[in-house]
Design a protein around this nucleic acid. Sequence first.
DNA 1: CGCTTTTTTGCAAACGTTTGCAAGCCTGGG
DNA 2: CCCAGGCTTGCAAACGTTTGCAAAAAAGCG
Lengths: 347, 347
Amino acid sequence: MGRREPTGPASRVTAADVARRAGVSASAVSRVFTPGASVSKGTSDKVRKAAEALGYRPNILARAMITGKSRIIGLVVAHLDNQFYPEALERLSTALQAHGYHILVFMTAQAEAPVDEVLRGIMDYQIDGLVLASVSISSDLAERCRALGLPVVLFNRSQDDARVSAVTSDNVSGGRRVAEFLIAGGHRRIAYIAGWEGASTQRDRELGLTVGLMAHNREIHARAVGGFTTEGAAAATHALFGADNPPDAVFVANDIMAFAVIDTLRFALGLSVPDDVSVVGYDDVPAAAWPAYALTTVRQSAEAMVAETVTTLIEEIEATRSAPRRVAIDGPLILRGSARIPEGWPQ
Amino acid sequence: MGRREPTGPASRVTAADVARRAGVSASAVSRVFTPGASVSKGTSDKVRKAAEALGYRPNILARAMITGKSRIIGLVVAHLDNQFYPEALERLSTALQAHGYHILVFMTAQAEAPVDEVLRGIMDYQIDGLVLASVSISSDLAERCRALGLPVVLFNRSQDDARVSAVTSDNVSGGRRVAEFLIAGGHRRIAYIAGWEGASTQRDRELGLTVGLMAHNREIHARAVGGFTTEGAAAATHALFGADNPPDAVFVANDIMAFAVIDTLRFALGLSVPDDVSVVGYDDVPAAAWPAYALTTVRQSAEAMVAETVTTLIEEIEATRSAPRRVAIDGPLILRGSARIPEGWPQ
DNA sequence: CGCTTTTTTGCAAACGTTTGCAAGCCTGGG
DNA sequence: CCCAGGCTTGCAAACGTTTGCAAAAAAGCG
């Protein structure tokens, strides 16, 4: 140890420093680090060498200020407790990194939050784009984003305002698929446990189930609200199965609630899944595949959704497109052990 | 459609605009938005009004460039599939927001990544601090951070280099606690399923178990590596229980692996948990409380760890402290149904 | 009311880049 | 050998703030 010079005053090595050492101008340095700029091989080499020696890296913030592009994408997300979101976040971050962007996170508990206020805060960084995961944007703010030319995409949440891009899974189709499946399985009393009523995913999944049943002149046998929480789902299960004439199948608005439903049925009510009652979820989070639950569920592919989100975002940022884009990705029903499988149902 | 004026005038309202409208100088505007600066009530009011009318908000990037403080904290994280991390991320983000900071995420798959390279990239943003979740930093880079005055704290990972702050749970103590508990429960053959060998959490948990056993002149009966993955844990379980003289208890390095262990024991090997074998995990992620697993586990409190992390970070940023700080938070063993509870064990 | 002390205010420089422009340098063709 | 045309390069202005300094205004005081 000892004679380790702590990079001198070390504070920050600037383009001017490199320029001086390389015997060129600061502009030259800048151009070397700007892909596609006009520099001769000679200066490029000199500059790179000097930069290397000094440990120079361009200051992104300064660059952002002049170019107006920060290469930061804002991400607003309400919860991370549904494993679907961490997975999406991980993939999103990785994918964007590959394009040279980074994610600036903003958590906002749905309830408490004046989402708009939060958003305004995040917009103070000159972000290049915005992903709203499971959170809505007021049309007022959407308008402001448009005026600022700030691309926005809603992730796993749609809304009527057609001016903003959105990518979701095809929740209606998924719900309908579940209806078909449960009817084919011979279930007579099909119940539904809803998520948070304000969510478009919730609405669409229920709608899908409803129209799916309607196609067979059936309707939802009973309904309770679980609010997308474990506790809510347990309570909803008690409500549904404590009543007369209990369901023989239940479609649960998402997987984490479905786990609680299964546990409640088995351990609190002493019922057998799937013998006494079939349970179907939505999302196909990793835990759905765990043998303890073996949850039959509609797959919502984080991978596909993220891919679409990234494409949309990048295209909008690079101004390849201006019209908003709305994507709903269909996903298969994954057959496992939590629901009776109809005779001859295609595996 | 049609007459969509791209970015309109609307683009960006600057301090000069506000100044003009309020009939003051740009400095005055700046001071109004700088807490603690010297401004009279009169101008403050005028400026605020003008700012409100124009929808002005200070450009954080410009501010960052001049002050050198970006109010951005970099977060490097390897995986988000262990629910402990999303929870930590959520809490960390929320806590930092309350202090006026935001998190810039950087994902780096442990294996693939030249973590240093990644880090260098993240440092291009003039971040004010760095949190490394479950990822190490080379001492070379640590030195550079120190030279730059960039606070770094390791989250859930410690390393020998005593110059960098770290907050972990007290993994050794936790492991020891498990040893005591399993011995008191009368188990004769206590096995261990390890995580990824490179992880300090893994090492320390195993060390704790070992010394705990040693205190009773015992040692680990058998050991296999699960690598912190579900598949790895399942394979490890098969290896351990396929051999002669199988364990009657197993301590698993973290909860997600423990779930896979329990499932494998029950569904693949037909063993009963806890009657045939006791299983103990580490972390106490939410799923550990789900009745299907009812996992007995050592609690690692994300809340407490995040609180310590934030304190450390903020103190270091505000230069209240300069010496690194190393915290290990002790956590209780949470008793549930996956392991036999010794007679008279304090609940 | 005049003088001193304090507070408020504007000017201008600075932060570290990028970029339009014009000058300088080559290269090569006639 | 000269000149046109194309590459390279440096200069200086710009991006939107903050901040030291000194001038101006307000306040305090005898």
